[in-house]
Amino acid sequence: MISQRPPTVWIDDSHAIVRRGMAACLQQADFVVRGESAVLSPEPVPDDLDVLVFEYGASSLRRAVRLAEGRPTRLVATVREVTEQSVREMVDAGVSAILPHSTLTADALITSLRSVVAGNVALPGDMLTRLLLHVTQTSHLGPGGLNTRERSVLRLLADGMDTRGIAEDLCFSERTVKNVVHDVLTKLNCRTRAQAVAVATREGVI
């Protein structure tokens, strides 16, 4: 999702100092901070909101997904304690980026949100490893499987490349890459690129 206007973001965290710190960092990077909350109270207004940054919790995840449903709003979760279950739940719910508090820096926050706004995912490598262990679904591939072009795009996604990098590497247009990614997500029954890479890796497709 690339926009000509400054990207808009809502910041949710139980600690006011953390919220203010994230807001200050993002405002310096030309993000427009629409508001802030603790445990999604007050509830964000999702209209024309590009990114909702929320503190992960079982109830907050459900509320964030409900708020973003049917909208282009991207979900970014900050996590105080990273577990295999929490990573699995967030990726299955369609969260585009997961940011552990223990490693969260201004640069990491800004880079991750810019990547998410551009339509990519931001999932640390150790979390991808955790995701690869997620085997709750036995089969995602339909009868047709994935074609050569789709597997090529998936391999580059697994290498951490973004849409522009994949387009340059394969000599495709960025629109073509986005269309291929959309087809892959549909075939694999996945919500995010990270989940698609994990599923394809687990099933030996790439």
Rank of each mutant, 00 (worst) to 15 (best):
P124M: 02
P72N: 13
A106H: 11
H134P: 09
S96M: 13
A108F: 06
D107L: 10
P42Q: 02
D48F: 02
Q27W: 08
R130K: 09
L75N: 00
S115L: 11
P100E: 04
Q85A: 15
L128G: 12
D126A: 14
A38Q: 13
L40V: 09
H101E: 15
S60I: 02
G125N: 07
A58Y: 01
A93Q: 05
L109T: 09
A38G: 13
R130A: 09
E84C: 09
P100C: 03
L113D: 06
R34D: 04
L128Y: 02
D47P: 03
M127F: 02
E43W: 02
E69G: 07
S112E: 03
V51S: 08
V33A: 09
N120C: 11
E55H: 11
R66W: 06
N120H: 15
Q85C: 03
A108Y: 05
Q27K: 13
D92Q: 12
F31T: 11
V76R: 14
A93F: 02
E81Y: 01
G35Q: 04
R66Q: 14
E36Y: 05
N120T: 12
L123W: 02
V39Y: 10
V76K: 14
V79D: 01
A58F: 01
D30S: 13
A29G: 06
L61G: 00
V116M: 07
R88W: 11
S86V: 12
F54P: 04
D30R: 13
A64Q: 11
L52D: 03
R130M: 15
P44F: 05
A122Y: 10
V53W: 01
G119L: 02
A118V: 07
L109G: 09
E36K: 00
G57R: 09
Y56S: 07
L99N: 10
V53G: 02
G57S: 15
A108W: 01
L26M: 09
Q27T: 15
A64M: 12
V87I: 14
V51E: 08
S102A: 15
A122C: 11
P124V: 06
P46G: 05
Y56M: 05
S115R: 15
G70K: 04
R63W: 01
R80A: 14
M90D: 07
L123T: 10
P124E: 08
V76W: 14
D126T: 15
S102R: 15
A64I: 12
L40F: 05
P44A: 03
R34N: 07
V82K: 06
V53Y: 02
S112H: 05
R114A: 06
S60G: 00
S102V: 12
D30N: 13
V82Q: 07
R80T: 13
S96P: 11
S59W: 00
A106S: 15
L49N: 00
A64N: 12
E89W: 08
L75E: 00
V65I: 10
L123Q: 01
A108D: 09
D92C: 08
H134Q: 15
P124Y: 05
P100M: 00
V32K: 12
R114Q: 13
H134T: 14
E89V: 05
V91G: 04
E36H: 07
T103C: 01
P124I: 01
Y56D: 09
V76G: 14
T83A: 04
S112T: 02
L128I: 11
H134R: 15
S37H: 10
